[in-house]
Simulated scan of single mutants.
Amino acid sequence: MTVSLRGTREVKNNYQLFRLTGLLDAFSEPTFRRVMGRCIEEGPKHIILDLSKIDFVDSSGLGALVQLAKKAQTAEGTLQIVTNPRVTQTVKLVRLEQFLSLQNSVETAIENIKG
């Protein structure tokens, strides 16, 4: 069995940056959801997900992103997603581009964080 999702975590003063590669799908979604949930609880509450190197997101992955956005909002934080054309297309298919706060670059996402 292969690990379909890999990533790194950087914790800064007021945000966490995750750079992910691989597939955000039904196989990786349970672990992704568990790990990200724990990271939001640990803080900081503002999350930047760099999915620009992700190859594929399926409906399970989209569901996990929506849950993550809700969890960040509940914790009075934010979730921003740095995307690529493939991820953007998938998100737009289900009309979630506003809710999921898609960004073109990590730098833009960092600038959007208040406080």
Rank of each mutant, 00 (worst) to 15 (best):
A69S: 15
A69K: 15
A69V: 01
A69M: 11
A69D: 13
K70H: 10
K70V: 04
K70N: 13
K70G: 08
K71L: 13
K71H: 14
K71R: 13
K71P: 05
K71G: 02
A72W: 04
A72Y: 06
Q73I: 09
Q73C: 08
T74V: 15
T74E: 10
T74K: 12
T74M: 08
T74Y: 05
T74S: 09
T74H: 04
A75L: 10
A75P: 13
A75F: 11
A75M: 12
E76T: 14
E76I: 12
E76G: 09
G77F: 04
G77M: 01
G77I: 01
G77N: 07
T78N: 10
T78D: 07
L79P: 11
Q80R: 15
I81W: 08
I81N: 05
I81A: 01
V82P: 06
V82N: 02
V82K: 05
T83E: 06
T83S: 15
N84F: 07
N84G: 05
N84L: 09
N84T: 11
N84E: 08
N84P: 05
P85A: 01
P85S: 00
P85D: 01
R86E: 05
R86Q: 11
R86M: 14
R86F: 14
R86W: 07
R86Y: 14
R86N: 07
V87D: 04
V87F: 00
V87R: 01
V87M: 09
V87S: 08
T88Q: 12
T88M: 09
Q89P: 04
Q89L: 10
T90H: 01
T90C: 10
T90S: 09
V91G: 03
V91M: 03
V91P: 00
V91S: 04
V91T: 03
V91H: 03
K92S: 11
K92L: 07
K92E: 15
K92N: 12
L93Y: 02
L93E: 12
L93C: 10
L93R: 09
L93W: 00
L93F: 01
V94Q: 00
V94G: 02
V94R: 03
V94D: 01
V94C: 06
R95M: 03
R95P: 00
R95F: 03
L96K: 03
L96R: 02
L96S: 05
L96G: 05
L96M: 15
L96A: 15
E97M: 06
E97T: 12
E97R: 03
Q98T: 14
Q98K: 13
Q98H: 12
Q98E: 14
Q98N: 14
F99M: 08
F99H: 03
L100H: 06
S101Q: 11
S101K: 13
L102H: 04
L102T: 07
L102P: 07
L102I: 11
L102G: 09
Q103V: 07
N104P: 00
N104C: 02
N104Q: 11
N104A: 09
N104T: 10
N104H: 11
S105D: 11
S105G: 10
S105M: 02
V106P: 04
E107W: 06
E107L: 10
E107Q: 14
E107A: 14
T108K: 13
T108V: 13
A109D: 04
A109T: 10
A109R: 03
I110N: 00
